[in-house]
Structure formats: C-alpha cells, structure tokens
Simulated scan of single mutants.
Amino acid sequence: MDLTNVSQAKVYDGWHKQYQHTSSVLNCEMRFAIFLPPSASAANPVPVLYWLSGLTCTDENFMQKAAAFEKAAELGIAIVAPDTSPRGESVPDDAEKSYDFGLGAGFYLNATQEPWKTHYQMYSYVVEELPQLVEANFPVTSQRSIAGHSMGGHGALTIGIKNPDKYVSISAFSPICHPTVVPWGEKAFRHYLGEDKTTWQEYDAVELIKTHQVTTPILVDQGDADGFLEEQLKPEALQHAAREHHVPLELRMQSGYDHSYFFIQTFINEHLAFHACQLFKD
C-alpha cells in the first residue's frame, strides 16, 4: 500500500507527521496525521489513540489546536487523526455546499445510498483500513483507544461501542449523542442511509447502548455553554441510556465551556490519562 510523507515536525521530542495514501475502501486519496512519542521504536512499539474530528475539520484541527502532544509524549501514546470524509474531485458533495453534509461531514458511517456509497465508507476506513495501515508501517501495537469531538465524538462512541474487541476505552468532547433525533444526524442519515430509520440506529450511541452489552469505560465532557447543546447533542439521553443499561459512562458537565478547541485544550490531558489507564493495563 502506498504511503507518502507530506510533512513532519519534531514536537516534545516526538514527531508529528502527515501522510497521504490511496484508500481502497473510500476509493480516493486520503490524508491522515500521526504523532509518535519519543519512546516509540521498533523495539518499543506504543499503543494508539485514534482521534475523530468534527464537522468541517481535517486531520489538522486536533493536531494543531488541542495541545495534546506534551502529555501524549509523557505517557508514551501515539495519536492518529484521519480526515473527516473522503476527498477529491470525484467525491460527491452537498449540492448547497453546506458544512453539515458531504465533504468534511462523513459521520463515520458506511453509506448505502447513491451517489454516496462509492466513497462514503468512513466506518470501515476508521475501523479496518486505517489501523491496518498504521500498524504495518509505524512502531505501534494493536492496543487502541478511540476519542473524538462533536461529529467525531459520535463516531468514537458508536465505533467503540460496536467494537469492544478493538478499543479498550472511549472518550468524547461535546458528542452528537443521539443523531437519529437531531437535525445534523437526520439530514446526514437520510442522505447516506435512506429513509428506513431502523438502519439509522446502527450509528446512534443511545440506541446502540440498548442493544449492546457495553463494558468499555467511557468518558464524556460537555460544556454547559455550548451553543449546540440543546438542539444537536443530547447528552442527557446518553446518560439515561447508560444508567438504565449499567454502562460505565462518566459524563462531566463543565461550567462555562463552549464547543471549541479551547474546551478541548482544557481537558485533553485528563482524557489522555483516562485512556492510558486502559492502554497500559496489565
């Protein structure tokens, strides 16, 4: 599989690198970023945190804005950040070029509808193709955690819940917890998955908790000054489902914080430490 180094920079004695490759799952060229801590080597492979970003983002937003490298270097954790959708001239986009659907808004699902299904297979890309590529080419182990923000928080929750054998911990900032009942999710799911709403439940964390035995520890931080909180995010529905089904979820409402990377910067070290507890568990 081809892998082209696009950029690299030393940071906290580790390395942040961007790569481009041809994705057979998405049928296009894709880019991802990886942070390798200074302890990572062929003799000492390290575990990986997969980070999924939100609407309009690329592989760059988290890596440049989250201030995660110092703590990740200290803990000895690699971080991988994929793009948020397929890209390229052949990849269809929203006809109105809106931010909440199409390019930059893959929703980490496998589309079943035309014209989206040829390229929009982000679930399989994140769960299968990208980890295989990373584990074959970098000094990392198969020990994984998953985290994300907003749309990416939705992705982290649903992917982590559905794949307990692949991820030892899950965390999210401001996730779209119940996408089947909010405008962002309804718009995307109708286009990508069609009108049969029973198929939507496969990508809704609240619904998945009702049908999966979830023992993977989950940490969610949500700002109470988030402008999207009431209409789009629905953390109370996630908390209710988790309590009802005995899921190990810690939901923390953070006073005064909004939806931005300033919020993520404030608590990212705690999320990394949370994941380290599981990634390095004996």
Results as ranks from 00 to 15, higher is better:
Asp94Lys: 08
Asn110Val: 00
Glu114Ser: 13
Ser142Glu: 14
Ala78Asn: 05
Lys117Glu: 01
Ala136Ile: 02
Ala95Thr: 14
Gly102Arg: 13
Glu89His: 04
Leu103Glu: 12
Glu129Trp: 10
His154Cys: 15
Ser150His: 07
Ile146Gly: 04
Asn110Ser: 06
Tyr123His: 13
Glu96Cys: 07
Ser145Phe: 00
Val140Met: 13
Asp94Ala: 14
Pro86Phe: 12
His149Leu: 15
Val80Tyr: 06
Glu129Ile: 05
Gln113Thr: 11
Val80Arg: 08
Tyr99Phe: 13
Tyr108Trp: 14
Gln132Ile: 03
Glu89Lys: 14
Leu109Gln: 00
Phe138Cys: 01
Ser124Glu: 14
Pro92Thr: 03
Ser142Ala: 14
Asn110Asp: 15
Gln143Glu: 15
Gln132Met: 03
Val140Asp: 14
Phe101Ser: 14
Gly148Ser: 05
Val126Tyr: 10
Pro82Leu: 04
Glu114Ile: 01
Ala78Phe: 00
Ala95Pro: 05
His149Ala: 15
Gly104Gln: 05
Gly155Pro: 09
Thr112Glu: 14
Gly148Glu: 04
Val134Glu: 08
Met122Lys: 09
His154Val: 03
Asp83Trp: 00
Glu114Ala: 13
His119Met: 07
Leu130Ser: 07
Tyr99Asn: 12
Thr112Asp: 05
His119Trp: 13
Leu103Pro: 03
Glu128His: 11
Ala81Phe: 07
Glu129Asp: 00
Glu129Phe: 04
Ser145Glu: 05
Asp83Tyr: 04
Pro139Thr: 01
Gln132Glu: 15
Lys97Ile: 01
Leu133Lys: 04
Arg87Phe: 01
Thr84His: 04
Leu130Gln: 07
Gln132Asp: 15
Gln132Lys: 14
Gln113Arg: 12
Ala111Thr: 05
Ala78Leu: 10
Pro131Met: 02
Trp116Ser: 01
Ala111Tyr: 09
Gln143Phe: 03
Gly88Trp: 09
Ile146Ser: 00
Leu133Tyr: 09
Gln113Ser: 08
Thr118Phe: 03
Met151Phe: 07
Pro115Trp: 06
Ala111Glu: 06
Ser124Asp: 15
Gly106Phe: 11
Met122Asn: 13
Gln121His: 03
Leu130Cys: 09
Ala147Pro: 02
Leu109Pro: 00
Asn110Ala: 01
Phe101Ile: 14
Phe107Gly: 06
Tyr99Ser: 14
Asp83Leu: 10
Val140Arg: 13
His149Trp: 10
Pro86Gly: 12
Leu130Lys: 11
Val80Trp: 12
Asn110Glu: 02
Trp116Asp: 06
Pro86Val: 11
Met151Gly: 09
Pro86Ser: 13
His119Phe: 14
Gly104Thr: 05
Ser85His: 05
Gln143Thr: 12
Pro82His: 02
Gln132Phe: 01
Phe138Glu: 04
Lys117Trp: 02
Pro92Lys: 11
Ile79Cys: 00
Thr141Ile: 03
Tyr99Gln: 12
Val126Pro: 03
Gly104Leu: 04
Gln121Asn: 12
Ala105Leu: 05
Gly148Ile: 10
Trp116Gly: 02
Asn110Phe: 01
Ile79Thr: 10
Pro115Ile: 08
Val140Cys: 07
